[in-house]
């Protein structure tokens, strides 16, 4: 089917930090992996989408352009000492979507303590 990339299609091993990471903090790659696990384990999260919206198709010549790298599911950026974490998630309908989003943000923050953190969570799909 033409589902967007979902967590179950991308093993955590494929997850990497985005190339836009401004400062290469040690262990950031491993951290993105850890955080993906944290996000996925929140009750109500059904999928994690690439944090950077990406248009891709494997039609013809477009192939070589888009196969350059695997899209990052969790983006980490160092913003003047504050670690900015970005995630796009799909949620089920068993729990209220806003509550799930808040819980994801809290779980990420808790995992990163005591590091100063700003979490950005987008719910891109509810139900289905």
């Amino acid at each position: 089917m033409t589902e967007p990339l979902e967590a179950r299609d991308d093993s955590p091993a494929n997850v990497s930090t985005a190339s836009t990471t401004s400062t290469a903090l040690p262990g950031l790659d491993g951290l993105a992996d850890e955080l993906l696990g944290v996000v996925q384990s929140v009750d109500g999260v059904t999928a994690v989408y690439p944090a950077q919206p990406l248009w891709q198709s494997i039609a013809g010549a477009a192939l070589s352009v888009v196969t350059g790298g695997t899209p990052a599911l969790i983006t980490l950026t160092d913003d003047a000492g504050v670690l900015a974490v970005k995630a796009r998630i799909a949620v089920g309908t068993s729990r209220p979507a806003p509550a799930v989003a808040r819980e994801v943000a809290e779980a990420v923050r808790k995992h990163l303590l005591p590091r100063p953190t700003a979490v950005d969570v987008s719910v891109v799909k509810v139900g289905g």
């Binding site: 248009w55 039609a59 979507a97 923050r109 979490v119 799909k125």
Partner: peptide, 26 residues
């Protein structure tokens, strides 16, 4: 073979538990 990117539309802000965080629904 198609990878149909979701159409996000506008970002709808959600209340967050922490002033540092930004939560949205598309």
């Amino acid at each position: 073979n198609l990878r149909l990117e979701l159409r996000p539309g506008r970002s709808i802000p959600l209340h967050s538990g922490n002033a540092q965080d930004n939560l949205w629904e598309t």
